[in-house]
Structure formats: C-alpha cells, structure tokens
Amino acid sequence: MRLLARISAGLILWAFGFSLLYALQGTGCAYGWEDASLFGTTMLRWILVATWLLLVAACLTLLRLTRAASSDFERRVTLATVLAGAGTMLITGSPVALTSACA
C-alpha cells in the first residue's frame, strides 16, 4: 500500500493540482477577482499563476521519493511517474498564464 502510494504520488498530485486550478478559475471569475487589478495584471491571474508554479515545484519535490525506493524497479517507476506528473502539471496548467481567464 505504501509502495503504491509512493509510485503514484506524482500522478495523484497532478490530478489534485488540476482540480484545484479548475476550481480557482471558476470561483475567481464568479467572485470578480478578474476585475481587481494588481501589479500590472489581475488578481485572478496572480493567484492562478502562483498556484500553478507552486504545484509544479511541489511535483518536483516528489523526486525525493526516488531516494527512499527499496528496489531498483521501484526507483525507476517512481522517477517515471513523478516526471510525468510534473511535466503534465507544467503543460496542463500553462493556460492560466497564456489565455484569457474569464469570458
């Protein structure tokens, strides 16, 4: 069970992060965070981009798990899933920086 948690942690964190960004975007648009400007852009943009970058960083910290691996197989699977999770977080979250938030 612990093994399963370690080798799927990267993908689970990505799933959580994507849901979090999705929820923040809808909530922010509904509550008008798009109308509050802050340091050259909107408050919603800052919140979304900061959350996204923190999530990518959090995904990368999971690389520590590869050191705790008890076998070579576990180490390789963990490395692959953590990198997949971090890369996917980077790409699926990038629209918060690239596209218009509320329309």
């Binding site: 790409i91 629209p95 690239l98 596209t99 218009s100 329309a103």
Partner: peptide, 18 residues
C-alpha cells in the same frame, strides 16, 4: 498533441477575444 493544443488555445482566444 502539443501542437494541436497550441492551435486550439489560439483558436479559443480568437473566439472569445474581447
């Protein structure tokens, strides 16, 4: 898929552009 996503995002921006 990355190329298609990029194209889709650009198309989406054009559709909802202010």
């Amino acid at each position: 898929l990355l190329a298609l996503v990029g194209y889709a995002l650009m198309l989406g921006e054009r559709i909802v552009a202010p």
